[in-house]
C-alpha cells in the first residue's frame, strides 16, 4: 500500500510539473522566431506583469528571450543579429556557433535549412522600472558583409500594458546591446 502510494506520488509529479511548466513558459520565456526569406514572424511581447508568482518574488526584473533565425535560402549564409530601438542592455549567449561580438554576427555560415539560436538575457534597470514600457523596438537579422536587412521582428517589453497602448510610447534610445 505504501509502495503503491509512493509510485502514485512519483507518477503525479512530472504530470503536474508538465502542466505547470506549460502554463508558465509562455508567460515568462519569450520566443522570437525569424526566418529569411519569408514573411515576418509573430511580434514578441514580454509582459512582466504576467510573470508567475515565484518569478515575481525572486526575479521580477530579469527575463530572457530565445531567438532563432532560420536560413531558408538555398545556400549557406552568415547572419548577424542585433536589437534596435531598445534601451535595455542585453547579454547574449549564442548557441552552437562562434559569435563575433564586433561584427554582431556568427563566424560560420548557417547551412541551408539551418538555424542560428541564441538567448538574450536582461534585467530592467532601476531607473526604468517605474515606466509602463521598457522597450519598443525590434530584433533584426542582417547580412554582415553588406548590412542588408534579412528579416526583423517587433519586440516590446511592457509591464501590464495592453498591446495597443504600447505602440504609442516609442523608445528611440541608443542601441545598448553588446
Amino acid at each position: 500500500m505504501v509502495t503503491a502510494l509512493a509510485v502514485a506520488i512519483g507518477f503525479a509529479l512530472p504530470v503536474a510539473a508538465g502542466h505547470y511548466g506549460r502554463g508558465m513558459s509562455g508567460r515568462e520565456a519569450a520566443k522570437a522566431s525569424l526566418a529569411f526569406p519569408g514573411p515576418p514572424g509573430k511580434p514578441v511581447t514580454v509582459d512582466l506583469a504576467a510573470f508567475g508568482g515565484l518569478k515575481k518574488t525572486l526575479q521580477p526584473w530579469h527575463f530572457r528571450i530565445f531567438v532563432s533565425v532560420a536560413n531558408k535560402t538555398a545556400g549557406p549564409r552568415r547572419v548577424g543579429v542585433r536589437v534596435e530601438g531598445c534601451a535595455l542592455f542585453f547579454d547574449w549567449v549564442v548557441r552552437d556557433y562562434t559569435w563575433e561580438a564586433d561584427a554582431r554576427a556568427v563566424a560560420e555560415p548557417i547551412p541551408p535549412g539551418g538555424k542560428l539560436t541564441l538567448y538574450l538575457f536582461t534585467e530592467v534597470p532601476e531607473e526604468l522600472r517605474g515606466q509602463p514600457i521598457y522597450c519598443d523596438g525590434r530584433i533584426v537579422a542582417f547580412a554582415p558583409e553588406t548590412g542588408e536587412l534579412l528579416t526583423a521582428l517587433p519586440l516590446r517589453v511592457v509591464n501590464g500594458i495592453a498591446d495597443g497602448a504600447a505602440h504609442e510610447h516609442h523608445h528611440d534610445g541608443a542601441l545598448h546591446v553588446h
Binding site: L13, G18, G21
Partner: peptide
Amino acid sequence: AVRYGFLAGYLSLPFFGTGIGCSF
C-alpha cells in the same frame, strides 16, 4: 518506488500532451 513512479510519469507525458524536457 517514488523514483520509478516519476520515471513512468515522465515517459507518459507525451500521452498527456505535455513534457518537461527543458522546463524542469
